[in-house]
Design a protein around this nucleic acid. Structure first.
Lengths: 155, 155
DNA sequence: CACTTGCCTGGAGTGCGCTCCAAGGTCTTA
DNA sequence: TAAGACCTTGGAGCGCACTCCAGGCAAGTG
């Protein structure tokens, strides 16, 4: 049975609670194949392998035949990465963050600083977008009355 | 005298009033060289030429020696393009919009539809970012107390 | 007049984030 | 046990949005 197609479900339950275990669990096993993970995260299997290669994933378990077996912890991490990606943070920076995590507790101050910088960026992006929204609304306003498919208006 | 460096001033007066004439006028001439425009828009001269090549700019005036002379109208258009760019709209779509504008008044319904679709995207992006902010705050919270540069804390 | 600075062009190059390919091994279901 | 879906790897390729280069013209300054 082929894995169900459910790409692009970014809208996971909002409280993804990183490294806590409130994760949408595909089933009870805590062992997911790459295509399952692809389906759940909306990332492609290619991307998941690539993330691992560049050091954006902590080492993923393998089956005795060498196939990846992702854990719930991995899923949590990927959900967080997905969020960071939404902010437009460069992948290289996420790798840096991942490296800091790997280095252990003593890097927490740096990690905090990094996230705070990201936070600032996000706040600014939101402001920019809201500004853009104003412009867009103004522009749309100037087209007011111009309806799509203007023929057969008299229905 | 070289043009003043003031790259990256995205934060133009918010009411940029596309094709209206409330524009920050570099001086009174209504004729700007490419490097002046680059300074005012924060786009590189390369990018401005490229935008023209791909049809994202209405035809720009030229001096008798063939140099570009941008008008206030061009600046307005570029400000709008800058806003669209912030939304993440692909350049190809902006070109489409520019083509519609060139085709005249009868394309207004399409243009309106296009902007409305963009608006929807922007609203969604804002929501995503706000969601991300929540996650970020949660994460930062877990690092609370971890201060940058922990040595010499006892000051 | 030489020199510097700025502009022009077509086309090539860059960096990012994937995305795909080839060649092969594995797992599942009939 | 055989087909077919799935997994593995290193490395090549792609699309986007620039970004830069070479070679050349034009205008201002000492």
């Amino acid at each position: 049975m082929t894995v169900v197609q459910m790409v692009n479900q970014q809208t996971v339950p909002a409280a993804l609670c990183v490294t806590e275990e409130t994760h949408p669990r595909p089933d009870g096993r805590d062992q997911y194949t790459i295509s399952e993970v692809a389906a759940f995260t909306g990332m492609s299997a290619h991307t998941l392998r690539w993330y691992e290669r560049i050091g954006l994933m902590p080492h993923v378990d393998r089956s005795n035949t060498g196939q990846r077996r992702f854990s719930n912890r991995d899923l949590d991490w990927l959900a967080f990465v997905g969020k960071l990606r939404l902010t437009g943070m460069p992948v290289a920076d996420m790798v840096t963050y991942a490296e800091l995590v790997r280095e252990g507790k003593r890097t927490e101050p740096q990690r905090k600083a990094l996230l705070e910088a990201t936070r600032t960026d996000v706040v600014q992006r939101i402001a920019e977008l809201q500004d853009t929204l104003t412009v867009l609304d103004y522009k749309i306003g100037t087209y007011a009355g111009a309806e799509q498919a203007p023929e057969r208006t008299g229905a």
